[in-house]
Simulated assay, not measured.
Amino acid sequence: MKLAAVTLTGAALALSAAACGGDKVESGDGGGDKKTVKVGLAFDIGGRGDQSFNDAAAAGLDRAKTELNIQTEEISAKPDEPDADKEARLKLLANRGYNPIIGVGFAYTNPVTKVSKEFPNVKFLVVDADQCKVEGANVLGACFSEEQGSFLVGAAAALKSTTGTIGFIGGVNVPLIKKFEAGFAAGAKAAKPDIKILPAKYLTQPPNFDGFKNPALGTDAAKGMLDKNADVVYHAAGGAGIGVINTMGGAKKFAIGVDSDQYNQPALSGVKEFILTSMIKRVDLAVFDFVKSTSDGTFKAGTKAYNLTNDGVGYSTSGGKVDDIKAKLDAFKADIASGKITVPTAP
């Protein structure tokens, strides 16, 4: 059954409104006499509903609510906010008794490091820990080999292109997104050495992070690549990627999604036949694994890798557009998992 929603009151509400940009509290009741675990999740820019990275985290939380006895609170980030706001958000959750707490996105690495020291009895997860490094006996960092999954969709792009020209659009020019670019290019060249890869387009430069949330920027970038004869474009741009996919689909050309299986995203239902595949990043699994480990007492601090060897990254087959090349993609996957192919992490 569903319990009544919990609401913020008094000073906590004022802090939430000022520092957090909104909240959502829900409860799940798994029955029995087990103590309910209160899980706090702080989203990256865009929050639940971005059809990509944050929604992957939300899927993991939703699974935990279904399978475990937990109560949750979700809070979203604001664009271009300082670390102090993220720290305030984490402290708000900790002071309200939420344990464990999840920070979604590499920008939470430093705030979690700081706040975790003030709350040594609270377990923290950083999804996409910066440089795959975290500190503290109560902190776990989830790290992904995005370059490996991107290699596979890069190979798919090259094999399915009919113009011989493909492109990559990154949301914000940061080292994490460079991993997507590097893997994509390596996979494309491995599959078809003579493929033309347009110069990568980054929507914004830090500290401007609109490139992860403004679809109009993705639209303009995709139009530019269509003008240069690209018929397959891969985006790693979060919510801004919606503009990329809609633009490519509108031109009846292929787009490649990211993080979630974007073929199944409601906001893209009108153009899903032009979503070739998506690079799946199992943020949902990382969130669920963490919540489960804190619930059953198996939590271990440090970092946990998600890659092709444990299906922490991969590619989607929804829509059947890559069925004819699946054997080739899976052969590349096996060679990467075995170490026969080493995928670069920088362009």
Rank of each mutant, 00 (worst) to 15 (best):
G239M: 04
K223D: 08
G183D: 08
L217I: 11
G154W: 02
A188Y: 02
V244W: 09
N264S: 15
G224D: 15
Y306N: 02
F124D: 00
K201W: 03
A42E: 03
T165N: 13
F288C: 05
K304W: 00
I275E: 05
D33R: 14
K65I: 15
I45M: 12
D284M: 10
L3D: 03
F180W: 12
A222D: 11
K133G: 06
V115S: 00
T298Q: 09
S295M: 09
A267F: 02
A305H: 02
K292W: 08
A190C: 06
I177V: 15
Q131P: 01
L140H: 00
A251L: 14
T165R: 12
Y263E: 05
G105L: 03
T204R: 04
P206S: 03
Q148H: 11
V104S: 00
V25C: 12
E26M: 14
S293Y: 10
K65Q: 15
Y234K: 05
K223V: 14
L41E: 01
D29H: 11
A77T: 08
E67C: 09
P206K: 04
P347V: 05
S161I: 02
R63Y: 03
A200R: 04
E81S: 11
N110E: 11
G167F: 12
F290H: 11
V271C: 06
A240Q: 12
Y306C: 02
P207T: 13
A18T: 09
L93P: 01
I325W: 11
L93V: 05
N121I: 02
A331W: 06
G22V: 05
A94S: 11
A77H: 00
P100A: 04
N208Q: 07
D128Q: 09
F299C: 03
A237F: 08
T294N: 14
G312F: 00
I166M: 08
D33E: 15
V39D: 03
A12T: 09
I70A: 10
L308C: 03
K35H: 09
R48L: 05
T9F: 10
T9G: 10
G28K: 11
T163R: 08
A190I: 05
K213D: 12
L61E: 04
E135D: 15
I197V: 13
A255N: 06
